[in-house]
């Protein structure tokens, strides 16, 4: 596993559950992160972004009044968004295929299933560092490119489509982390 020093990165954690916020903060601190703030919902998080230059956002799904998807869309396409390109890790217990597709289409960069581990969280942060994805504007969508572009020599199939087909249309089937990766990264 590549060893990165994270101490200069600013993290914004968004979760309505204070225990989850405490857990994620503790893990990040143990990994050497110094600058880490949190918010209890998407609206508060958006306010925080105005004065906190987050490098990575770790965001829950279910929150009121503004949930993780709405928040992601607001960050990506809001006229007053401070940083439409900021990487967003969706941290959620929802791992069904239709949910992952929905999160991807809102513009999340990475997906991490709860319950979390330190290794799992670091691996998602590492992916963001090592594989910054180009952004696309396509119709109503603006966000990380959902198609494979980084390797012109890639001769395999379209894993995103294959993952969908493999599931045989069972949109509520739970996905493994590998299947989630395939859906997110094309």
């Amino acid at each position: 596993m590549a060893e990165y020093n994270l101490e200069r990165l600013n993290f914004l954690i968004v979760d309505d559950n204070k225990h989850m916020r405490a857990l994620v903060t503790s893990i990040l601190h143990a990994l050497g992160v110094k600058n880490c703030i949190d918010a209890g919902d998407g609206a508060d998080a958006f306010k925080e972004l105005r004065h906190f230059p987050a490098d990575i956002i770790i965001c829950d799904w279910n929150m009121d009044p503004l949930d993780g998807l709405d928040f992601t869309r607001l960050v990506r396409t809001g006229k007053d968004s401070p940083n439409p390109f900021v990487p967003i890790i969706m941290l959620t217990g929802h791992t069904e295929m239709n949910r992952v597709v929905e999160a991807r289409d809102a513009g999340v960069s990475e997906f991490l299933a709860k319950p979390i581990s330190a290794k799992g969280l670091y691996s998602r942060v590492r992916s963001i560092i090592e594989r910054p994805r180009p952004f696309v504007r396509a119709g109503l969508y603006f966000g990380p490119d959902r198609r494979r572009r980084d390797n012109p020599a890639y001769m395999g199939g379209e894993r995103r489509k294959e993952a969908a087909v493999t599931e045989g249309g069972d949109e509520e089937a739970e996905l493994s982390q590998d299947e989630v990766e395939a859906l997110l990264n094309g």
Binding site: L6, F85, I128
Partner: peptide
């Protein structure tokens, strides 16, 4: 489809 390469600010900080 418009492809945009965002500034890679993370690599400078990590």
């Amino acid at each position: 489809v418009q492809v945009i390469k965002p500034p890679n600010t993370l690599s400078a900080k990590v």
